[in-house]
Amino acid sequence: MDAIKDLSQSAQTFAHDGQAFMTRCTKPDKKEYLQICRAVAMGFAIMGGIGYIVKLVHIPINQILVGGQ
């Protein structure tokens, strides 16, 4: 009986916290949306640049170690 009571209490707490979270959430305005888009684009560019540099370094090293013809 105690386990059922704990489970129902956990479900009620989860539902209450979820409802409070949803009421606090707001739709981003245009300025905030553009800021998020810029941050994501910068992340993609940085990660792509790092990947490109790693690939540029990896290919010659791999050719030296493997001795590909």
Rank of each mutant, 00 (worst) to 15 (best):
F21D: 03
H16K: 15
C37Y: 07
I4Y: 09
Q69E: 09
P28H: 06
Q9S: 13
S8W: 04
R38K: 15
K5A: 11
D6L: 11
M47L: 15
D17N: 14
M47K: 02
I46M: 07
R24Q: 12
I4E: 14
H16Y: 05
I46D: 01
S10A: 15
V66D: 04
Q19S: 12
P60F: 08
M47N: 03
V66C: 02
M42L: 12
S10M: 11
L56A: 12
G67R: 03
S8G: 00
Q35M: 07
Q35S: 14
D17Q: 12
L56K: 14
C37Q: 15
G51V: 02
Q69F: 06
A41G: 04
M1V: 12
Q19D: 10
V66W: 02
G18P: 04
I50L: 12
L65K: 03
K31E: 14
E32G: 00
R38Y: 07
I36S: 05
S8H: 10
Y52A: 15
N62M: 11
I50V: 15
G67F: 05
Y33E: 07
K30P: 00
Q69H: 10
Q19Y: 10
F21A: 15
I59W: 08
P28W: 06
H58T: 12
L34M: 14
K30T: 13
Q35R: 15
T23W: 01
I36F: 10
G51W: 01
I46G: 02
V40A: 14
C25S: 12
D6F: 12
F21T: 11
G18F: 06
F21Y: 10
P28N: 03
P28T: 03
S10E: 14
K30L: 09
G51I: 02
A20D: 09
K55T: 12
I50A: 12
A3E: 13
G49Q: 03
D2I: 14
A15E: 07
M47H: 01
I59H: 03
G48L: 04
T26G: 04
I36T: 09
I59G: 00
K5H: 05
A15V: 11
R38E: 11
H16N: 10
T26R: 14
I50N: 01
G67W: 06
Y33F: 11
S8M: 13
A3W: 08
Y33C: 00
K27N: 08
L34K: 14
I46V: 15
I4G: 01
Y33A: 09
E32S: 10
I59K: 13
L56N: 09
I53H: 00
E32H: 05
I61D: 01
V57P: 01
Q19G: 07
I53W: 03
